[in-house]
Nucleic acid binder design. Structure first.
Length: 203
DNA sequence: CCCTGATTCGC
DNA sequence: GCGAATCAGG
């Protein structure tokens, strides 16, 4: 494969949108992310935001540069290209990581949880108020879940439990986890609540 | 280990 | 110019 005009343009476009090199490479096909990065540099359009190094930084940032007298024109998009791409994830709260292999590793079971009554319930973060969207997603995901057993779980398999541990109908999602998280994308969606609009305790 | 971009350097 | 290998960081 070679860098045809079209391919270069797609590269520029995607890079401008904050896509990662690997994503771009995947999209283009026939090239590796290294090739993409190499090209990006050769084109001179490397840094797109503050810190480029590291998995961080992907969101477009407002330019705060003095902009000397040698900068290419910004990017006047003549065609109105609707591309709603808000932050896919609103920063989850600090979470007790690594429940490790316990009988019930999930802090927030999808179904009912049998709570041994007696003590006042521990601070259970919003067990409800999960967007119906997210829930629907989870239900779909469960269909294609890998249904792993406890022992089959690895560092990057979704550890979301499904079913009742007391029955045979119990398994773990097992889909690829979202980086850094213990769950797959869908389950992260219901596990990590951004913060619910505090319903004041009104009685 | 997964991922990210940055650099180097032989081709 | 190209991009695999390597580096550096999360």
């Amino acid at each position: 494969m070679s860098w045809t005009d079209e391919r270069v343009e797609l590269l520029k476009k995607m890079w401008g949108e904050g896509q990662s090199a690997s994503q771009i490479a995947k999209e283009l096909g026939g090239v590796t992310r290294n090739a993409v990065i190499g090209k990006v540099h050769r084109l001179g359009l490397s840094n797109r935001a503050g810190t480029a190094a590291g998995g961080a930084a992907a969101a477009p940032k407002a330019e705060a540069k003095p902009a000397p007298a040698a900068e290419p024109a910004p990017k006047p998009q003549p065609k109105a290209e609707a591309k709603p791409k808000p932050a896919p994830e609103p920063k989850a709260e600090p979470e007790p990581e690594k429940p490790k292999a316990e009988v019930r590793p999930a802090p927030l079971p999808p179904r009912k949880q049998i709570i041994p009554a007696g003590q006042p319930l521990p601070p259970q973060p919003s067990a409800n108020e999960i967007s119906p969207e997210a829930l629907a997603k989870v239900n779909e995901v469960e269909k294609k879940a890998k249904k792993l057993t406890l022992m089959e779980l690895t560092e990057r398999t979704c550890k979301w439990p499904v079913g009742d541990p007391a029955t045979d109908d119990f398994w773990f999602c097992g889909l690829p986890v979202q980086q850094g998280k213990p769950y797959c994308e869908a389950h992260v969606g219901v596990a990590f609540q951004p913060m619910s609009a505090r319903r004041d305790r009104r009685r």
